[in-house]
Write a protein that binds this DNA or RNA. Structure first.
Lengths: 335, 335
DNA sequence: ATGGGTATTGTAAGCGTTTGCAAATTGTTT
DNA sequence: AAACAATTTGCAAACGCTTACAATACCCAT
């Protein structure tokens, strides 16, 4: 049972009869302390139930051993898996994580970054579909390193960890085309977002071109990122004459599938679906849904690892990391 | 464009020609400042791009405006929804959230709480299925208020926000019995956990008793909390002769359902299922799964609101809050 | 013993704010 | 114009710890 009002470094120093500096040294694992005094200090610490005050430590050392994570929504399976990867390696390196949900609102993203900066975090991991100018500017103004996880910025200057979205979508699109479809729809988020216009759509078009199929703008759909959106866009996809779809979000994909099945379509016989995030949603449905496979946990973990290096001023060869993706063929594609 | 090395309160005081105290006052919205000087200070702050250093502020004021959240796993939909509720009201009251995943490991829970304490958080919200003695003790040793969200402690002394688990399970069980089942299985987590032995099983038995059905121990199952576990336990449930099941976790429930359907059972004609958490999983499958309805977001939000009061030393009439639950009848029950 | 080098330990100046209390300024009242 | 009360400010001491730099202590070879 420890006493409520905690002891300070002064108390233990006084107790042992040494200076604050010495106590500080043993607490911080500094070797320049005689073994015998180290023992005495350690004992006193034990007896007094002393725990260093991290705030004071932060003020004095200018390091908080805390990083900030800015994400759209913890509730979104895709991001929460990245977050888990981040948190695990953060702990591994003894960092704590300050979490902020932004719902992708640039205003909140900006506030979050500024807030984290004033809390003196040692680094920030940023996730979100789009990096607006404004947000990019405030990130540039922060003096803690920032790395993007599962997110691209148009200019491609910030350190980041992703998969190759162009290639991934291209492969998925090619796969359904090879299964005989010549009208494959693609649903993404707003085309104003770089990740859609500069990556997903590009990959999609590349596949079409490779397979000698003319691009048809009416096969492009942009939706919100949830189940209801999938339910809604499904009908439009069908009436556009598509017989397959590449979706950017698993909930959307499942929404599309359920709408189609509820309306008599057979999957995959009548219609094929490939989604992008490979979250648990894809395994839970019948049929299970074919998906681009993303190492979500690893994206987070690698981003965090990179951040530790940055915070440590280590030199990094490549700051734009692309992790390998796969195509997990399941029940919503014939092949 | 703000300068990198940020200005301190001293800089703005110097710039305006007032004392630190005055700047501090305007920054903190203290009224005892002449309107005209407040303006000047505000201007200087603007020009210098001054942002208060939260760490220094924390040291001086002994308040960090940061709370800690200890949870099993961000990746678990149930908890992440609670977390979202927590985060939203935390922001509303200008608190930041320090997040820790514990995977329900008592050792890590203990470390997390201690770590948060040394980071001087103003309060803690704890989530987890079971509060071991050890964890309870360290919580007692922390001088920041702690509230439990979606979690019960055997002794029931800590402030908490939950639903009435006994009643909820009782209703669910009664519902399937009324649909004609006399052998309904129940799957929970370890019976060593209070929430199972003291709540869920109790509710289950109460329903049996009410409906004059003898309790049969072979209908009790304990599993891990994931899809695979559901797949595995399903067979045992069937061979135990059950024709309905009450599950404590949505992934488990879906696992059970998929196993059964893949093996020729018709749901709900041949077998009924009710789950407990009402996450998105229940809506995404076909049929959709009947579930106890829990106000997950609200549990988090209310817990956080309560924490703000505690941190503010306000008097609270009831510290053991039970929020209303429902029974969402969907496709895995006939009625 | 003595000198020199190394291993230990202590000193004290921050780190950027808050805040109780005192000093100064301004406004009222008579 | 003096006296007194509010209002506004400024002073300076914390807050609990880190960290150059200085001071001591200790060990060994001479």
């Amino acid at each position: 049972m420890q006493k409520k009002s905690s002891a300070t470094i002064y108390d233990v120093a006084h107790r042992v009869g040494v200076s604050l500096a010495t106590v500080s040294r043993v607490v911080n694992g500094n070797n320049n302390v005689r073994e015998s005094t180290k023992r005495k200090v350690l004992d006193a610490i034990e007896e007094l139930g002393y725990h260093p005050n991290a705030v004071a430590r932060g003020l004095a050392s200018k390091k908080t051993t805390t990083i900030g994570v800015v994400m759209p929504d913890v509730t979104d399976m895709y991001y929460s898996e990245l977050a888990r990867g981040i948190d695990d390696v953060a702990n591994m390196y003894h960092y704590d994580v300050l979490l902020t949900n932004t719902d992708e609102d640039p205003v909140r993203e900006t506030m979050a970054v500024n807030n984290l900066a004033s809390k003196q975090v040692d680094g920030i991991i940023f996730m979100g579909n789009e990096l607006e100018r404004e947000v990019l500017n405030t990130i540039a103004g922060v003096d803690a390193p920032v790395v993007l996880a599962g997110s691209v910025d148009g200019e491609g200057k910030l350190p980041s960890v992703n998969i190759d979205y162009v290639e991934a979508i291209k492969e998925a699109t090619t796969a359904v085309i090879k299964n005989g479809h010549d009208r494959v729809a693609i649903v993404t988020g707003p085309i104003t977002h770089a990740i859609n216009s500069l990556h997903r759509i590009v990959g999609y078009k590349a596949a079409l071109e490779d397979m000698q199929i003319a691009f048809d703008e009416t096969l492009l759909f942009a939706t919100h990122q949830d189940y209801a959106a999938g339910l809604q866009v499904a009908e439009k996809i069908v009436s556009a004459g598509a017989t397959a779809v590449i979706a950017y979000d698993d909930e959307v994909a499942v929404g599309i599938m359920n709408y189609l099945r509820d309306n008599g379509k057979r999957i995959p016989e009548d219609f094929e679906i490939i989604t992008s995030n490979d979250t648990k949603f894809t395994l839970v449905t019948r049929p299970e849904v074919t998906s681009i496979g993303q190492p979500k946990y690893d994206i987070g973990a690698v981003a965090m690892r990179m951040l530790t290096k940055l915070m440590n001023n280590e030199i990094i060869d490549d700051t734009q990391i692309k992790l390998p993706h796969t195509l997990e063929r399941r029940g919503t594609t014939r092949n």
